[in-house]
Structures are given as structure tokens and as C-alpha cells.
Design a protein around this nucleic acid. Structure first.
Lengths: 343, 343
DNA sequence: AATTGGCACTCGCCCACCCGGAGTGCCACC
DNA sequence: GGTGGCACTCCGGGTGGGCGAGTGCCAATT
């Protein structure tokens, strides 16, 4: 008995099932692949694979369908990665480079990935906490209102308005200017996550009359950083779910759509997956630990540069997706997205 | 023969069909409504209504189903508007007032509307062109890069970076400061659409060495205003389509989802609908003039204050939606959204 | 003239039944 | 261990009949 052949059989089953969407039988298998043995032999192998939990029959006397575990083995050991063609690569790069600002880059990336994979694509905005600070700006809006603008080196901009009516009734232009300069001296170029301590010490250097103001501003900055939870996600390609895979989901795709709308779910998943930018992670079926997603798989990659992953990008599709193709697409888009953001 | 009764019959048919989702027959009609006549009479009325194109039978010997035209007559003349209860109103207002910034307001509004209608909600971001300017900020980012931040009175923030390497190699802090002040003098408080002319005259007041810089900045501001096309939409509740109305669409809901992803389609529709903030507009079925939306209706309202509509908000659902309820919800959310943005 | 009860008729839906085909497991044999 | 053969299982699709809901029409009634 050859273990190698059994793995070949599993690979063949996955590949065929992904294409046909129908349980694949031993006869069809020997016809479509050059396995060099008869269907009876394959049947024995299939029985063993079923024993191992890699495939199942939907009902007696039907062909076999891969299980979550089967897909897992497939992506871990059997899938041969498809390389992207050079024209494809160039097209991806060119498309992303046309973007005019961060919103546009993210929007283009997510649409592109949805298009490439014919699935649902998701892109997480670059994390505030892990970005470096480019500039902090204070703007006096009048009426005791101060606008705090935080600009990161990835081009992300967060703003908050601050009502100072009860804190600093007389908001002098000089104080604001001084605070602006000092804040930037302390903060520029640092990771946002490294900022909390130095910011805390800042207030001491100001005359006591202004300390309340300084503290209020510092607090807003810190709150904004703390709002990691408010990480934004952008989705595209939900229509692909309905188009290609209407019958891939046992009942309706309602639960899937619900899960996708619950950004919390996606954020958790993204957070759980491998943190190094170079690797592509795959969650298959129940591995997502979410009821609505048991019939889907999630392929993600970090992006944002060699040293640190800023955020993640991913593609969600039916269990029977084209794993090699999806992995290649996710990796490619992540890579070029990183380049565009760095450049 | 009483025309009034026929309209009553139509109303009864619409109301029943919305609830049951099944063709409604003459017998069921007399049982569930106090029409005071027998089923045979109703049958005659139904024949007349069918003659007029307000209802159809899916097949011979089936009950009747309203047509687009039937729904149209219903919303125009027969629907009695449901008033929102006071607790509901308070809940809406409270929920929207908790928002911390513009993104959050919009996000809350769209989720709220999706929740209320159990349909797909869409909110258009307040139009840049129609907003008034609160502040223009210039930030020197170093490396010949200048950040232009445009802040509107609705709290919307748009930013663009400008590469000045070829224009103003030596970017002096004083020039930037001066430009900042003058730009704000010219611009603050005006509608963005009224800005183009005054901005054009600004460059003349600067020394010739700086004119290129000024022109570049002004150009960026104008371009940003011109990007009306980039009006952003936010959707929520797509899962509701799959949950409640899986069988409301003849085949799959794929085409509907595709139409929703094509923001161009929605933007066109929103643009076509009545422009005064006070009124709620309804597009029924083919009135949307879009293939993917023939089996849906679209209820929208403007928001943003009495005088000028800043943008629109709406709800999309199956043809057989609860029109009075949807209209009430859309109107309520639009109203409170306006208040929150104004306050 | 409008309304009504009665009646024949039409269809879609459901269910039960049946059959063909694809696929399996197992065994005896090589 | 691999193979051919065979009996068995079960799904899917097609067929046919009965039921019920609903209609249109007509003659009778008010």
C-alpha cells in the first residue's frame, strides 16, 4: 500500500470536486487522472481516506467529497502554488499605483482582489497603533472648539474635535502654536503605540494655567489610539457569493452575509491569523470558529512591509474554492499593496 | 359600481400580499377584511383591477398579485402613513447622538435604518460641494510635501498630499503660514461650490516667486471639490435580503447584490430622486430603470436641513415591502440625522 | 344596475410510485 | 497489493392521479 498514491487520490478528489461541485467517484477519478491503477484500487484508497476523515460520502452509494480536514491536508501538503503571470503582476501594480489617496488605494485593492478571486475580498485599514506618526495638527475652530488631526506615514488621517468650553475659555493662539510644536517634537516619527508615556510627561512643561488644555488634547490623542477596536474594514464582491456559489451553501447565504456584516467577527479572525506579512494563512470551515462561516474558507495575508504587518487583507469563499489560485491572488495583492503604501 | 370599493380592494390585496407573500383570492379577502360584500362581487372588482393593470394572476385559477402599477397607486393614494411612536423617536435620536464623528454618525444612521426596515439601507455622505467650509489647513510634511486638509461644517474631512519638488523647492514656513491665513479668510464659511472664483484671484496677491505654489494648492482644492463623482456611499443590511426575502426574487439575489455593489447605479438613482429634503420619494420596480433592481423598490429622502439637501438616505427592499413602515422609518432617520449634523 | 349564490372548469401542488444509473463494498482471483 | 466481477444501495427524475383553491360566468335577486 502506497501512502503517496493515497495523497494523490486526495489531491485528485479535491481538484475535481472544486471544478464539478459534485461528489467524485472512483471511476471518474481513474478516467480523468493518470493514476495507473484500476477503480477498485482507488476504492480501497478512498475507504482508507474516509477512515482517516479526509473525505466523506454525502450518502451511501454516492461519490466522495472532501472534509475540512481533507482541504486542510490539501493546502498544507498537496497544493502546488500557481505563480502569477508577469502581465497579471504588472496589471495589479499599475492598477494600484493609479490611486490618489489612502481611501482609494484600499478601495482599489479590495475590488481588485474580489475580481481576481471571484469571491468576497476584505481589506483592513492600516492599523493606527502600528503606524508611525507623520504629523499632529491642531486647528482652532473658534467657539472653544479645537480640531486634532493625526496623520500617519501610511497616509491615514484621524480627526477629533474637542470642546474646550469648560476647560480653557480663553484659547490663545500662542498656546495652541506652542502645543502644536511640542507635540510634534515629541511625537513625530514614532510608532503610535510608543507614544503614551512621552505624551503623559508633556503637560508638566507647560504653565499651570494651560495644563488642563494640554491634558485634554493628550487625552484625545490617547483615546484615538486606544480605539483600535474601531479598525475599519472594507468589503467587496459580496455579489460573487450569490453568482458563483449559490448552491455551495446548504440553505441560503443569509448567515454568511450576516457574518460578513458583523465586522467584529472578521476583525477577530484577522487578528487571530499569523502575524508575519510574508505568509498567507488559511482558515477552513469550522476553523473559523463562527457558525455563519462553517461553509466558507478564509485566506489572508498581512501587508505593509517586511518588518511589521500594518494590517491584513483576505478573501472569503466557499469551502470548495480554488485554494492555490486564491492564495496566489491574495499574496500578490498584499505584496503590491505593501509596495504602493511604502513608495 | 363603486370606484371607492375597488380601491379598497386593491389596498386589501396589497396589504395581504405583503404579509402572506401569496397570491390573494376573493374568498380570503372577504374573510380578512370587512368589505361588506360577497366574494363574487370582489371577483368582479378584481377583474376590473386586472383590466386596469393594477393586479395580475401568476397563472389561471390563482389569486391576484399587485403589479408595479398597483403598488404605485397604493403608495400614492392608499397608504396611510404610520407615525413613529415617541419611544421609537427618542431611541433613534439618542442612538445617533452618541456618535463621535461624521463617520460614526453615518455608520450609525445606516445600520439603524437597516435595522428598522429589515432591508438594505444606504446613506450618501454629505456632499462636499454643498457643504460650507469650516477650515482649510496646510501642513508641511517635509520632503517638499504639503498636506491640504479641507474640513466642512458637517465634519467631513478630505485631505490631499501635494508634491512640490518641481514647483517650490524651498518651502518657507512663512509662506505656508501666510497662505494658510489668506486661504481661510477667503474661504471660511462659504459653500464649496462658491469658492472657485475667489480662489482663482488669490494667487495675484502673492509675490511672483510664490505664485506657482499658490496655484498648485488652489488647484488641489478645486480638484477635490470637482470630485463630486467620488461621493461615498455606505450600505448596511445586505444580509436582510437573504434572510427575509430569499424567495422574493425570481432567481437568486445575485443581480440585486451586483446592482448594490455598483455604487454608480445607486448614485444615479439617488441623484434622480426629488431634491427637497422634506419629501420621501419612492421608486417601484422598473421605475428604477435598472435590470438588477426590477424586483425591488427604493425609498429615499434627503437630509441636511430645511434649506438645502446635503445628501440622501434610503432603503431598498423587495417589491412587496411594507411601504408605510419603510417610508416612516426613512423619514424619521433622515430627520434626526439632519438634526444631529446641524447641532 | 349592482349584487349574489351556484356551478363548472382550470391548474398548480403534493404525494406516491417507479425506474435507471452511478457508485460502493466485498470477495475471489491473480 | 492490485484487479475484475457482482450484488446492493440509494438518489434523482419522470409519471400519474387526487385535492383544493380560485376563477369566470350566469341566472336569480334586490
Amino acid at each position: 500500500m502506497s501512502d503517496d498514491r493515497r495523497l494523490d487520490v486526495l489531491r485528485a478528489i479535491v481538484e475535481d470536486y472544486v471544478v464539478t461541485r459534485e461528489p467524485v467517484g472512483s471511476r471518474a477519478l481513474v478516467e480523468r487522472h493518470s493514476l495507473g491503477v484500476s477503480s477498485a484500487t482507488i476504492r480501497n484508497d478512498m475507504a482508507a481516506l474516509e477512515e482517516g476523515g479526509y473525505i466523506v460520502q454525502p450518502h451511501t452509494s454516492a461519490g466522495r467529497v472532501p472534509t475540512d480536514r481533507g482541504y486542510r491536508l490539501f493546502v498544507d501538503r498537496l497544493a502546488t502554488v500557481k505563480a502569477m503571470s508577469s502581465p497579471e503582476k504588472r496589471a495589479i501594480q499599475a492598477f494600484l499605483e493609479e490611486a490618489v489617496d489612502l481611501d482609494d488605494v484600499v478601495d482599489r485593492a479590495v475590488r481588485l482582489l474580489a475580481q481576481l478571486t471571484q469571491q468576497v475580498a476584505v481589506v483592513q485599514y492600516p492599523s493606527l497603533r502600528r503606524s508611525a506618526l507623520r504629523h499632529l495638527e491642531l486647528v482652532d475652530l473658534g467657539e472653544h472648539r479645537l480640531l486634532v488631526v493625526i496623520i500617519t506615514d501610511t497616509g491615514r488621517v484621524e480627526q477629533r474635535t474637542l470642546d474646550l468650553a469648560t476647560i480653557a475659555p480663553a484659547l490663545s493662539e500662542e498656546t495652541v502654536a506652542l502645543l502644536r510644536v511640542r507635540l510634534n517634537v515629541v511625537a513625530t516619527g514614532r510608532r503610535l503605540s510608543e507614544l503614551v508615556v512621552p505624551l503623559g510627561e508633556l503637560a508638566d512643561a507647560f504653565p499651570s494655567a494651560d495644563q488642563a488644555l494640554v491634558r485634554a488634547v493628550v487625552q484625545v490623542v490617547e483615546e484615538t489610539l486606544a480605539e483600535e477596536s474601531e479598525e475599519r474594514l472594507v468589503l467587496a464582491g459580496t455579489a460573487n457569493l450569490a453568482r458563483t456559489g449559490a448552491h455551495d451553501f446548504t440553505h441560503t447565504l443569509g448567515p454568511v452575509l450576516e457574518a460578513l456584516e458583523e465586522q467584529v467577527v472578521l476583525l477577530r479572525l484577522l487578528g487571530e491569523m499569523a502575524d508575519d506579512a510574508a505568509t498567507v494563512s488559511v482558515r477552513i470551515g469550522r476553523e473559523t470558529h463562527h457558525e455563519g462561516l462553517v461553509e466558507t474558507s478564509f485566506v489572508t495575508s498581512g501587508y505593509g512591509g517586511e518588518d511589521a504587518t500594518l494590517a491584513r487583507i483576505g478573501s472569503i469563499g466557499p469551502l470548495r474554492m480554488d485554494y492555490p489560485g486564491t492564495i496566489a491572488s491574495v499574496r500578490a495583492v498584499a505584496r503590491y499593496l505593501s509596495r504602493v503604501l511604502a513608495g
